[in-house]
Write a protein that binds this DNA or RNA. Structure first.
Lengths: 197, 197
DNA sequence: ATTTTTGCAATGCAGTTGCATTGTAATAGA
DNA sequence: TCTATTACAATGCAACTGCATTGCAAAAAT
């Protein structure tokens, strides 16, 4: 069997093109022809890897959210041996990274949220409600409070929920340019200081 | 001069049609012809009131955000004589109203956010960053803490900022159907109880 | 009663869209 | 070497798009 190419690499290139077009022209500005030009390939190649435009867009946005989640996981693993409080801070800060690529992914995730109001299938792409992450965060919060000598309080899962909801909202503000990353970090630190006593 | 009609009423009808189409088909599914059909008017009438499709969509989304803000204001005014804590709770709860029309407006606002990542002009439509509202909320928080006999603490403006960021995030979750209104209210109440001591 | 301005309605049109179809170069297996 | 399969490339097409244009009925102003 002939001419074996790396399918995943091709799809990734196309997804990158979709990302750029989405950020520049919006999701409705993503057309097969523009994607082909942006990726520097023929339109035939786009069709070869995706049967329909909808599948193309969905896979591209899916990859964006996955990539952002991977960055959060990486942030967690990067502070593996540190204190619980450091790990907690860093993994929440991951969403507010000043790295331009993270900002891109964050903006794309916002686009996914916007689309999900009319396309329920898009909701499944979003993973912030994953209960494992919430439980892990709750564990971190409890450990960090213990490190500070603060007694346990209330419902740790809700505390974790609030943390992620807060940085999600701050992340959206940063993504649309309505809040500076520095300001967002200030708000996050303020909240964590209160939370950890 | 002849045949005077209520321009604002006509535009409102068209905006309603844009809303329905946006929630059903997404922003990219809003076409002049579909808006005309949905509103039960001719395409000529749509063109008569809006020079371009872009102006039509922008005005419709603008009206949605304005309507949602009006509901928040109404919630504040409705509890005018109540305690600060009640006013605070109710005005934050306004975003999470179980009223279907509020949910519609909330979903449309989410669509605006999604669009604003590729259309910076859309950001101006969003008003959550209005400093007056933040200051007012900070005042409410301080008053509510005093009612409870809790001493002042930290930065009231940031506390207010966190409150609005939190309900914004909860509101998005509710809008996309990833969280029930009841769950969102539970989280909000938990946060307020911690905040007010 | 006539005119003139307003508020549409209807149609036309060029451009763009997603997708189907067809053709073809390259290469792995026989 | 032959062949079958993969990976595209090129083109075609019907449907739809936003917008321009034109026509026309109703009513306020004269």
């Amino acid at each position: 069997m002939p001419k074996i190419v790396d399918h995943d690499q091709r799809r990734h290139r196309l997804a990158e093109a979709v990302w750029s077009l989405t950020l520049r022209d919006g999701l409705e500005g993503v057309t097969l022809r523009k994607v082909a030009v942006e990726a520097g390939v023929s339109m035939g190649q786009v069709q070869h890897y995706y049967a329909t435009r909808e599948q193309l867009v969905r896979d591209a946005l899916d990859r964006a959210v996955q990539a952002l989640n991977a960055r959060i996981d990486a942030a967690i693993r990067a502070t593996d041996s540190a204190s619980a409080e450091t790990t907690l801070r860093e993994c929440l800060r991951a969403l507010l990274s000043r790295d331009p690529e993270s900002l891109r992914l964050l903006q794309l995730s916002v686009a996914v949220v916007g689309r999900s109001i009319s396309d329920p299938a898009m909701v499944s792409v979003l993973a912030p409600g994953s209960s494992e992450l919430l439980e892990f965060t709750a564990t971190l919060i409890a450990a960090a409070r213990q490190e500070r000598g603060t007694p346990p309080r209330g419902n740790g899962l809700i505390d974790a929920d609030i943390c992620w909801s807060l940085i999600t909202s701050l992340g959206v503000d940063v993504a649309v340019g309505q809040r500076s990353p520095d300001d967002a970090l200030t708000v996050l630190d303020y909240h964590l200081d209160n939370l950890l006593g």
